[in-house]
Simulated assay, not measured.
Amino acid sequence: MLIENENQNPKRKLYSCGYWQYNGLEKDTYGFTEIKSSLFENDYILDFSVGYYHTLILTSNSKLIVFGNNYSGELGTGDTEDQPFPIRIKLPKLRFNEEISNYHISCGVYHTFIYYSPPPFSNLEEDLIKLFQRKEFCDISFKTENGEIIEAHKLILKYRLNQNQNQIENQIEKLQEIISNKSIKESNQIFEMIYSNNSKINPKLYSEIKEIINSNEKIEETMKRIYLNENENEKDFIIERKEKQYKFPKLILIMRSELYRGMFLSVTEDKSNKVKDYSELSNKSFQILEYWIYSNQIKEEIEITQEIINELQVGIDYFQLNQTNPNLFDLLINKFNN
């Protein structure tokens, strides 16, 4: 089996030859013949693997296409029926920040592996853009000039728009007025600029919204303002620790912790809004962790001891924060050494 122009042509073609029941074609072929299927339309091939008598193909639209012998269930269809022609198997729904390219497939003789490598944490601006594009936890809608609906996250807008706490609704109305005169493409660009604070996406559009956004504020400062100023009753997830409760917006935990990203975005998500945390952290250590999750910083006045470092190393592992940049453990060690 061959794949054409692997590194150059995004519309890759797959060729096969051999016995018809295993080659993905309708007849025996003795020379390489392109496999054509409606499953490949408007799509391109990311990865493929060939076993003894079976083949799996991964495409850019989250499709897993299989065909061939299925005597031992190696096609993953849930039965042992052979599939001489390509059929599609659904992959799990992609979560926030995940790409189909994070999946890899490998076929053995009578078995198949699908390997998933979780994406690394990007910077917060990139994560916000991906969050906007994934439409997870959208809770506010805007209407474009053609009546199309574009959804956004009110929590993020609340702290990206240039306002005091009593004027947020006025600023959202101003944003709606701007969106109502724009196409869906321009509206998406406007929200990408608000989320990422990147005027280069469309300088002309940016000039129209710069009066209503915090154009000079870093994402970390925005998140810290949420932490310091947000009404406790508006935070929607509670971590119970001994005698104290810590409240977080789910969006913040998704962007900062792989543990909560998986918890909130899995297809079998627990719908409860609280969890008991039994990790061995003192309240002081947990408060350091809490502040860092929002701000990517350690408070200057905090004194770091070896005991706190040891505790927070456990917390970093528990919350799966090892991929974040900068790494909290590195910041702790630097502050301790200084």
Rank of each mutant, 00 (worst) to 15 (best):
Ile150Ala: 08
Glu221Lys: 12
Gln176Met: 04
Glu177Arg: 12
Glu211Met: 04
Ile168Gly: 07
Ile172Tyr: 09
Pro203Asp: 12
Gln176Lys: 15
Gly147Asn: 08
Glu192Cys: 01
Gln165Thr: 08
Gly262Leu: 02
Lys200His: 05
Ile213Gln: 02
Ile239Gln: 08
Gly262Gln: 08
Arg225Trp: 02
Glu211Ser: 12
Asn214Gln: 07
Glu151Leu: 00
Glu258Gln: 11
Ile254Asp: 04
Lys200Tyr: 03
Phe264Met: 13
Ile194Phe: 07
Asn198Glu: 14
Pro203Lys: 13
Asn229Ser: 04
Leu157Trp: 02
Asn164His: 15
His153Ser: 10
Leu253Cys: 11
Glu186Val: 13
Gln189Ala: 09
Asn229Ile: 02
Lys158Glu: 04
Gly262Phe: 03
Leu205Tyr: 10
Glu217Gly: 01
Met193Lys: 13
Lys247Gly: 01
Glu151Ile: 03
Lys250Glu: 03
Ile213Ser: 00
Ile172Ala: 09
Glu145Leu: 06
Ile184Lys: 15
Glu192Trp: 02
Lys244Ala: 14
Lys235Ile: 03
Glu169Trp: 12
Gln171Phe: 11
Ser215Ala: 04
Asn170Val: 03
Phe264Lys: 13
Ile254Ser: 12
Glu230His: 05
Asn233Pro: 06
Lys235Val: 02
Ser187Leu: 07
Glu208Arg: 08
Leu228Ile: 12
Ile168Gln: 07
Ser183Gly: 08
Glu232Val: 15
Glu220Thr: 11
Glu230Cys: 04
Ile238Thr: 08
Ile194Cys: 05
Met255Ser: 05
Glu243Ile: 10
Ile149Lys: 15
Ile184Val: 14
Glu217Pro: 01
Ile209His: 00
Asn231Ser: 14
Met255Arg: 04
Asn233Thr: 10
Asn214Cys: 02
Asn233Lys: 10
Leu175Glu: 08
Thr222Arg: 10
Lys154Phe: 07
Asp236Thr: 09
Arg160Pro: 13
Ile190Thr: 07
Lys154Gly: 03
Glu186Phe: 10
Thr144Glu: 00
Ile184Ser: 13
Tyr195Phe: 15
Lys244Cys: 15
Arg225Val: 02
Lys143Asp: 04
Asn202Cys: 12
Glu177Pro: 01
Tyr159Thr: 14
Ala152Lys: 13
Lys204Cys: 03
Pro249Trp: 05
Gly147Met: 12
Thr222Ala: 11
Ile209Glu: 04
Asn214Gly: 00
Lys143Trp: 00
Lys242Asn: 07
Lys204Ser: 11
Asn231Leu: 10
Glu145His: 09
Glu177Gly: 05
Lys154Cys: 00
Glu234Gly: 06
Pro203Trp: 06
Lys200Leu: 06
Glu243Arg: 04
Glu145Val: 13
Ile178Gln: 00
Ile150Asn: 09
Glu220His: 03
Gln176Pro: 01
Lys158Tyr: 03
Tyr195His: 05
Phe191Asn: 05
Arg256Gln: 09
Ile254Gln: 08
Ser199Cys: 04
Asn162Tyr: 06
Lys182Ile: 09
Met223Pro: 00
Gln167Lys: 12
Lys218Phe: 01
Lys210Trp: 00
Ser187Asp: 06
Lys204Asn: 07
Lys204Ile: 13
Lys200Glu: 14
Gln165Tyr: 12
Leu157Ser: 01
Gln165Ile: 11
Ile179Gly: 09
Met263Glu: 10
Asn216Ala: 11
Lys158Ser: 08
Lys235Met: 07
Lys244Met: 14
